[in-house]
Simulated assay, not measured.
Amino acid sequence: MALRKKLACLIVLGGDKEPYKLPDKPKEAAVSTFSEYMNASMSRDYDKMLSLSDDYRFKTERTRLNFLKA
């Protein structure tokens, strides 16, 4: 159970599209994101899983896209 809570927190912190801004209700956002991710995983919806994930190496989506393009 403790591992699940840590994972959910990581998803909320890493999944937020605006850096350093937490959602209004972080616990609910964590549970929702985790549930969406697991549902997508079970149905093998890789596009959905990717949309719920962030690559911590890049601060913005534009930087990530420029890296992938290169």
Results as ranks from 00 to 15, higher is better:
A2T: 10
A2D: 12
A2Q: 13
L3C: 02
L3T: 04
K6D: 06
K6H: 07
L7H: 05
L7M: 04
L7K: 06
A8I: 01
A8W: 01
C9L: 05
L10D: 00
V12H: 04
L13S: 08
G14W: 09
G14N: 15
G14S: 13
G15H: 09
D16G: 14
D16N: 14
P19G: 09
P19H: 09
Y20L: 13
Y20H: 14
K21Y: 10
L22E: 13
P23S: 13
P23C: 11
P23Y: 10
P23G: 11
D24W: 13
D24Y: 14
K25Y: 11
P26Y: 04
P26N: 04
P26F: 04
P26R: 02
K27G: 06
E28H: 07
A30G: 08
A30F: 05
V31A: 07
T33Y: 10
S35C: 05
E36A: 15
E36P: 09
Y37C: 04
M38G: 00
N39S: 10
A40C: 07
A40P: 06
A40V: 06
M42C: 13
S43M: 11
S43A: 13
D45L: 08
Y46D: 12
K48G: 04
M49F: 10
M49P: 05
L50F: 15
S51R: 14
L52I: 06
L52K: 07
S53P: 02
S53V: 01
Y56R: 08
Y56M: 08
Y56V: 07
Y56T: 06
Y56Q: 07
R57M: 03
R57I: 04
F58R: 00
F58M: 02
K59V: 05
K59E: 12
T60N: 00
R62Y: 01
T63D: 10
R64N: 03
R64S: 06
L65P: 00
L65V: 00
N66D: 05
F67L: 01
F67A: 06
L68S: 02
L68G: 01
K69W: 02
K69C: 00
A70I: 03
